[in-house]
């Protein structure tokens, strides 16, 4: 079901009396890569958890193609929305291929009952994140960057039409950051809605189709990259001084300092 859309419909979240999200209203269109940016504590991860139905909002709802996503059976929802949380854990030292196969669980595939299509999806996901050579290694024996790519492969293996990834490039070196951003962009080009929480504004500017900027639980700007990522706004929200340059591939951000 490529071409799915997601709508955070006036979503608010209170945690322990603290307002984490306040009437967030964003319509995510299909076949696009959205970068969700904002300073630490802006509410990005909480919004992602709500979009993934891992956390229930205090108010508002999430609509999948204008249907309340909370009304969908959990297995069906899991086939449509794949989610990679910020906290990537592997409680037991499992082999990489078996871990990635967990991404096929929404399709009813288990290690015991997987069909060739499931193993094909797992192999493709491992290949796309360039971890095929690690397939038989144990997850706990990998470096932080390798693990990050394996976990992304797990999310890709679901072959969902909506992919929510929270800081997918946080532990990666520049080469692999670029590789993962290219992979996410390809997902979007193939008709998938990709929403990625990113701290690297330069990569967000380079790869994202649209930007959603959060600050203190509110949407401060959303839209095209060039419209949202302006020097005055970045100075205001992130307290950084930035030079915005235009080239053939879009805009490029050069951080020149911080706003005291």
């Amino acid at each position: 079901m490529k071409g799915a859309t997601l709508h955070a419909d006036h979503v608010s979240l209170d945690l322990g009396g603290r307002e984490v999200l306040s009437a967030v209203d964003i319509a995510f269109g299909s076949a696009s890569l959205y970068a969700m940016v904002g300073p630490n504590g802006a509410g990005k991860s909480s919004l992602m958890r709500i979009l993934a139905q891992v956390l229930a909002p205090s108010q508002g709802s999430v609509l999948l193609d204008s249907q309340r996503i909370a009304d969908l059976p959990s297995r069906q929802r899991a086939r449509i929305v794949a989610y990679l949380p910020q906290d990537r854990q592997a409680a037991w030292p499992m082999p990489v291929r078996e871990l990635v196969m967990l991404g096929r669980m929404p399709h009813g595939a288990t290690l015991e009952q997987a069909v060739s299509a499931d193993w094909q999806a797992v192999d493709t996901a491992l290949e796309r994140t360039k971890v095929s050579d690690l397939a038989d290694r144990c997850i706990t024996h990998l470096s932080g960057g390798e693990r990050a790519r394996v976990f992304l492969a797990r999310a890709l293996a679901t072959q969902a039409s909506i992919l929510l990834v929270d800081e997918p490039i946080a532990a990666l070196d520049p080469h692999h950051q670029w590789l993962i951003m290219e992979t996410l962009q390809q997902e979007a080009r193939s008709g998938c809605l990709v929403i990625a929480v990113l701290h690297d504004l330069s990569l967000a500017a380079r790869f994202a189709d649209r930007i959603v900027m959060l600050d203190q639980g509110r949407v401060v700007a959303q839209g095209d990259t060039a419209v949202v990522l302006t020097a005055p706004r970045l100075a205001d929200v992130f307290n950084i001084a930035v030079r915005v340059e235009q080239d053939a591939d879009g805009i490029r951000l050069v951080q020149t300092g911080r706003v005291p």
Partner: peptide
Amino acid sequence: GNGYRALVLGEDSATSLGID
């Protein structure tokens, strides 16, 4: 068994995989 296996990835991931 499938639930415990999904929990290898933590509660959030297991929930997103359709496990209650």
